[in-house]
């Protein structure tokens, strides 16, 4: 299998997940099998096929530039796990 534990660890940082040792092992094994399965798409020649990112081909959908109502601040912040009267709060961010 080409997918290594180190690869999986790197992906877990990209996806902002923290996986324990045992979880990493299981994940490496399971992802390995799934990736092994999806590899079969490689057997299809698709050089002249346009990618299909949307289920329906639509275009030019716009809204007019008109002001609408915003949420009252307490409603906007209501679901925040940590906040003060005005803002969301996170641990001090330094040069990140």
């Amino acid at each position: 299998m080409s997918l290594t534990r180190a690869d999986v660890e790197k992906v877990s940082l990209l996806g902002r997940l923290r996986l324990g040792d045992a979880e990493l092992d299981t994940m490496t094994e399971q992802m390995g099998r799934i990736v092994g399965y999806i590899e079969q798409l490689g057997e299809l020649s698709t050089d002249n096929v346009q990618p299909m990112a949307h289920a329906q081909e639509m275009h030019n959908v716009f809204a007019d530039d008109a002001l609408g109502a915003s949420l009252p601040r307490d409603a906007a912040l209501a679901n925040a796990p940590k906040k003060d009267a005005e803002c969301y709060r996170v641990p001090a961010v330094l040069g990140e």
Binding site: K82, D84, E86, C87, Y88, R89, V90, P91, A92, V93, L94
Partner: peptide
């Protein structure tokens, strides 16, 4: 720097 939360 670093003493208190960053506010968003």
């Amino acid at each position: 720097h670093g003493k208190a939360d960053t506010r968003i």
